[in-house]
């Protein structure tokens, strides 16, 4: 263990400042730009083209308008976009 709390305090302060610097660097590099687009990372394109039985007519129309028409598995038993 480190010999005294003063050392530790200094180490934490330096570490904290480094973290802040890293955050600012990332900010300036634009890593946080258009951040809500990154929410799409979890989605696969065909996730939007599957009919969902709980959708209201309006919700379905909205989805189709944004992402194109609903697809169905071509053959039963083949998973298609349902994977």
């Amino acid at each position: 263990m480190l010999p005294s709390s003063l050392t530790v305090t200094l180490a934490i302060t330096i570490l904290g400042l480094l973290t802040v610097a890293a955050f600012l660097w990332a900010w300036r590099k634009g890593q946080f730009d258009r951040i809500n687009d990154q929410a799409m990372l979890a989605m696969d394109d065909d996730d939007f083209n599957v009919a969902r039985p709980w959708e209201t007519v309006a919700q379905r129309a909205e989805r189709v308008a944004a992402h194109g028409p609903t697809q169905l598995p071509a053959v039963p038993g083949i998973w298609g976009g349902a994977r």
């Binding site: 263990m1 480190l2 005294s4 709390s5 530790v8 305090t9 180490a11 934490i12």
Partner: peptide, 10 residues
Amino acid sequence: SLLVVIPNTM
């Protein structure tokens, strides 16, 4: 540091 190292020294 806060909950293990500093208490250890104190």
